[in-house]
Design a protein around this nucleic acid. Structure first.
Lengths: 251, 251
DNA sequence: CGGGGGATTCTGCATCCTGGAATCTTAACA
DNA sequence: TGTTAAGATTCCAGGATGCAGAATCCCCCG
């Protein structure tokens, strides 16, 4: 560490030592802090109250203190993860090699999904690249995976007039909700010719360090080669790749 | 934010506001802080000196202050997640219901795995609970998943005299390495009667916010009900559950 | 080298922060 | 339901800490 300050500030020292103690422990009580700092309970309480007020700590109903959003903000804003596409691309390529089909990366944009990256399957018959395209979220597997992560209010806000009915697409919001319940239960989403005749797909979420879905990865396949009942076979490799992308975003 | 503290500490406030300012800006000077806090330069300097001494800031040769290792330590160690078992248990239970088999959570301990939680399968014939048991890591699916995450030096250090040969277990370090290569490639580990006759299992890693493997989740099944070729069917639900545990640990 | 801008050191004094005690709150047990 | 113990929060007098302003030092550029 550094040389001791020429002019130490005892109150500041208490606060910073308490903050580090909170980091180490993850959850602390007033008495713990008092012992750790060697101060009166009332002093410890005042220090913690300052940490709470400035967002460095939160206190739950049982009066336990935990790290607060000011420290999370550092995480979110400061430890900026590698660029999404850059991080994901090697894993998309690997998945493409593994399953021999077209893979995509997409992000939610309004109630659509923007395809931001992809690798086409090597076989003569394969789903073409959709990079740059914006498709309805509810009619794509990756879009469904992302919609399944939204709170209901947000989902409703995306579809103020219900869900548009394209070819074989979901007819109303209640039906979409039921579909998304299934996505959440299984852990992955399936699209069987909803966005395009003869195309099926499986999609899963890619997450950031805080566990939030920031993108989706999907495998899109020709229906003729992948009957509906075989789509589940794509789930495990896709989930592995999504986890690897998440890890890359997190590192 | 919160209500103002009943007893604000002015010096602590200066320090915490300065710390947030440092987070936002990424690099600051004494004069910046003095302006931001509305204090004399000497006051600002004293506050920054305390931040430096406690590792929350560093100062370079040009006298610019930047975020210091104490804030990084928060990221690495400290997003102190909810307790591992507490976080994982609901998801283990759900997985148990979904696949109808015994599920476990385990952590690496030396070159063994400690079973720290589990839910037994509901069928008459099921793998019994191993909670509390320490088994050789290389002979369990979860153990293999965890070993596959280790750098080679660490793996070697765990097996200074090669790998012990139990029933059908891997005979030497080179063979273990090959096995772990397969684990990494597939994204999940398989155990076919290596730790116990008639028992097969699939295991995957559970990760923390930094993407590091902190535990493994596994499904253990009777061999009679799950021939070797069907083990892959357990991978997707297991991967989904592991991802959910990771999310719970990360939130 | 000189000068300007910024950082660091110093010190008197005022006000802030402390500890201890009183009071409040919560949880567990009979 | 009531009681009790443990922990948290509030209060206030007094002493110690932290402040500002000025002096001094440091760095960089012309």
């Amino acid at each position: 560490m550094q040389n001791p300050p020429t002019y130490p500030l005892k109150a500041v020292e208490n606060a910073l030592v308490a903050l580090k103690f909170l980091q180490e422990r993850g959850e602390i009580r007033v008495a713990d802090v008092a012992d750790h700092l060697g101060v009166a309970r009332s002093t410890a309480h005042r220090v913690l109250a300052m940490l709470v007020f400035h967002g460095f700590a939160i206190q739950d109903a049982r009066r336990v203190y935990r790290p607060g959003p000011a420290l999370r903000s550092f995480h979110e804003a400061g430890m900026a993860p590698p660029d999404l596409v850059t991080a994901a691309h090697p894993h998309l390529r690997e998945l493409n090699r593994e399953v021999g089909e077209t893979v995509h990366l997409m992000v939610l944009q309004g109630n659509g999904v923007r395809f931001v990256d992809g690798v086409e399957g090597p076989q003569t018959l394969h789903v073409g690249s959709r990079i740059g395209m914006l498709l309805p979220a509810h009619a794509t597997s990756g879009g469904k995976a992302l919609l399944a992560e939204l709170p209901d209010e947000e989902l409703r806000a995306l579809y103020p007039r219900g869900v548009s009915t394209g070819a074989a697409a979901i007819g109303d919001l209640a039906a979409l909700r039921r579909e998304l319940d299934g996505v959440r239960r299984r852990g992955y989403a399936v699209n069987s010719e909803e966005s395009e005749r003869g195309v099926r797909a499986v999609g899963v979420c890619v997450r950031d360090a805080a566990g939030r879905a920031v993108a989706a990865a999907a495998v899109a396949v020709p229906g003729v080669r992948w009957p509906k009942r075989r789509l589940a076979e794509l789930a495990a490799p896709l989930l592995v790749s999504a986890a690897r992308i998440t890890t890359a975003l997190t590192a």
